[in-house]
Amino acid sequence: MSSPYDQEIEDLLALYRKQREEAVETRRRINEVTGTATAPRQTVKATVNAQGELTAIEFPTGAYHRMAPKELSEALMTTIRQARANALEAVAELTSLNLPAGVKVTDLLEGKVDATALLPQEPGAPDEVREYIEKGRPEMRGGGAR
């Protein structure tokens, strides 16, 4: 004989598993994000990963040859900042609806929070509930009704 709570427990466990899988998938998708920006006159093109780390820098034209060092430096810095902003925006789109309260996209990007750590491997439960899940109802174990 099953308890009226058996289906509820199974539904809750299924929901938990689904949320955990979604967190893992979100982390995978974040890892694939890049942000790219190109400076005016195509003097420089920068690409960063989801953590904002520079992964590529290109000079699509020879325009940088005619730039003063300070001007080139400013173009590089501005373009890298824009690439980072583009990556952050892409990550925010992926995560804005899925993040628990208090968790910031920037914390995920900086590696301060691991999406899989947001949900523990096993859900917390009182000992009685865990025993019920593992062993079934007391009368089903031969212990009779409590």
Rank of each mutant, 00 (worst) to 15 (best):
Met1Tyr: 05
Ser2Glu: 11
Ser3Leu: 13
Asp6Ala: 13
Asp6Val: 12
Asp6Asn: 13
Glu8Tyr: 08
Glu10Gln: 15
Leu12Ile: 03
Leu13Val: 02
Ala14His: 07
Tyr16Asp: 03
Tyr16Ile: 04
Arg17Trp: 00
Arg17Lys: 14
Gln19Lys: 15
Gln19His: 10
Glu21Gly: 09
Glu21Val: 02
Glu21Met: 08
Glu22Ile: 09
Glu22Gln: 15
Ala23Cys: 08
Thr26Cys: 08
Arg27Val: 05
Arg27Glu: 13
Arg28Trp: 03
Arg28Tyr: 05
Ile30Phe: 10
Ile30Val: 15
Asn31Pro: 00
Val33Lys: 01
Val33His: 08
Gly35Pro: 03
Ala39Val: 01
Pro40Lys: 11
Arg41Pro: 00
Arg41Ile: 02
Arg41Gln: 10
Val44Lys: 00
Ala46Arg: 05
Ala46Thr: 04
Thr47Lys: 06
Val48Gln: 00
Asn49Trp: 03
Asn49Leu: 01
Glu53Phe: 02
Leu54His: 02
Thr55Val: 15
Thr55Gln: 11
Thr55Asp: 01
Thr55Arg: 14
Ala56Asn: 11
Glu58Gly: 02
Phe59Trp: 12
Phe59Glu: 03
Pro60Glu: 06
Ala63Thr: 05
Ala63Ile: 07
Tyr64Glu: 11
Arg66Gly: 04
Met67Ala: 08
Pro69Arg: 11
Lys70Asn: 07
Lys70Trp: 05
Glu71Cys: 02
Glu71Phe: 06
Glu71Trp: 03
Glu74Arg: 15
Met77Gly: 03
Met77Gln: 11
Thr78Glu: 13
Thr78Lys: 14
Thr79Asp: 05
Arg81Trp: 06
Arg81His: 12
Gln82Asp: 11
Arg84Asp: 05
Ala85Ser: 11
Asn86Phe: 02
Asn86Val: 01
Leu88Thr: 12
Glu89Lys: 03
Ala90Ser: 15
Val91Ser: 05
Val91Asn: 02
Val91Cys: 15
Val91Asp: 06
Val91Phe: 04
Glu93Pro: 00
Leu94Ile: 10
Thr95Cys: 14
Thr95His: 01
Ser96Leu: 02
Ser96Asp: 09
Asn98Leu: 15
Asn98Val: 13
Leu99Met: 12
Pro100Arg: 13
Ala101Ser: 13
Gly102Asn: 07
Thr106Gln: 14
Asp107Lys: 14
Asp107Ile: 08
Leu108Glu: 01
Leu108Asp: 00
Leu109Thr: 12
Leu109Gln: 13
Gly111His: 09
Lys112His: 13
Lys112Cys: 03
Lys112Thr: 03
Asp114Asn: 14
Asp114Gln: 14
Ala115Lys: 03
Thr116Lys: 14
Ala117Tyr: 01
Ala117Lys: 12
Leu118Asn: 03
Gln121Arg: 14
Gln121Met: 06
Glu122Pro: 00
Gly124Trp: 15
Gly124Met: 11
Asp127Asn: 06
Asp127His: 09
Asp127Thr: 10
Val129Asn: 01
Val129Gly: 00
Arg130Met: 12
Arg130Tyr: 02
Tyr132Asn: 04
Tyr132Met: 08
Ile133Pro: 03
Ile133His: 04
Ile133Asn: 02
Glu134His: 10
Lys135Ile: 00
Arg137Gly: 00
Pro138Ser: 10
Pro138Ile: 10
Glu139Cys: 06
Arg141Glu: 12
Gly142Pro: 12
Gly142Tyr: 09
Gly143Ser: 10
Gly144Met: 10
Gly144Arg: 12
Ala145Gln: 10
Arg146Glu: 07
